[in-house]
């Protein structure tokens, strides 16, 4: 199975449920293929590539599609059924980077004080304390636990700095979720996800989605907070070289703080999930970047 065939087995987000208009056709791209997202007058939604229909489903505030006739099941987010939470889809932001780089950046805490200064981190609190990373064998997901970080403003609803606990989940190569301390309640965790639509190997649309306990903030404020964080990331992501994610450990040297990233890269390699990746240090693009 080659890179694109492997990638075609999954579901991908291509639109936001609340954003679609009746009797409307939108054009977008997925894995280098042009597709059309059609909404009938009746509200029925369908997706076509070269006039052939693809599977579609709606979940977690978004429309998902897969080029495969028998896609792998879409991952479960149990919190999506918890109606005490507020569900916040944030639209998409286009980034010129590999879809895998977008996911990897989402899993990293070490950059918080430098990229999200005074929001998700602040100097001198830059140390990433040891945490655990595992592969959940039954679900086949990368899981990082016991991640702790000092945050001046962990969420829109936070009024003071707090030490935030994080759990990260990577249920499929281009989707990731985190569970973090809810600033208002100590018995539950907020959920933040990024669903990545790979337009091709070097461009993606990122659809952030949140399931929060926050009865104070307006939708506009919560969406703005998440967009702001992601736009700070975007500047960094667009400047990473090479654009594709290197999977050979010789190509980018990890540190202790990068354990999640190391596990993610290994897991991608094990699955042959290399769409958007650079596999070997003899790869031309890698040699050229040196």
């Amino acid at each position: 199975m080659n890179a694109i065939e492997q990638a075609m087995q999954y579901w991908y987000p291509i639109g936001m449920l609340g954003d679609l208009q009746r009797s409307e056709t939108r054009k977008t791209r997925l894995l280098g293929m042009d597709i059309e997202l059609k909404t009938e007058q009746s509200g029925l939604i369908s997706v076509f590539h070269q006039k052939k229909p693809w599977n579609t489903k709606s979940a977690y505030g978004h429309i998902w599609t897969s080029p495969s006739k028998m896609p792998k099941p879409l991952f479960d987010v149990p919190e999506a059924g918890d109606h005490e939470r507020r569900f916040v889809p944030c639209g998409s932001v286009r980034v010129r980077c590999s879809p895998l780089r977008a996911v990897e950046n989402f899993l990293d805490v070490a950059h918080f004080p430098f990229v999200h200064t005074d929001i998700l981190g602040a100097e001198p609190h830059t140390e990433v304390e040891p945490y655990s990373v595992n592969i959940d064998e039954t679900k086949d997901e990368v899981i990082a636990t016991k991640v702790k970080f000092y945050q001046p403003q962990a969420a829109k609803s936070a009024s003071d700095g707090i030490v935030t606990d994080y759990v990260y989940r990577v249920p499929s190569p281009m989707n990731a979720l985190l569970y973090k301390t809810c600033p208002n309640r100590d018995d539950v965790q907020d959920v933040i996800a990024i669903f990545v639509q790979p337009l091709d190997e070097e461009t993606c649309d990122v659809w952030p989605w949140m399931a929060l306990y926050d009865d104070q903030s307006t939708m506009a404020e919560m969406i703005e907070f998440q967009q702001l964080i992601f736009l700070q990331d975007r500047s960094v992501l667009e400047n990473q070289i090479p654009i594709k994610l290197p999977l050979d450990p010789k190509m980018e040297i990890p540190t202790r703080a990068d354990l999640t990233s190391v596990a993610y890269r290994r897991w991608l390699k094990k699955h042959g999930a290399i769409y958007g990746a650079m596999v070997s240090s003899t790869d031309d693009a890698w040699v050229a970047a040196q």
């Binding site: 005074d118 702001l228 736009l231």
Partner: peptide, 20 residues
């Protein structure tokens, strides 16, 4: 003050700003 895409200079004090 900064905004996303416009960063403060490193030697500037970036303290005392909220997320916006």
């Amino acid at each position: 003050i900064p905004m996303p895409g416009i960063y403060p200079m490193h030697d500037l004090k970036a303290d005392e700003t909220d997320f916006a």
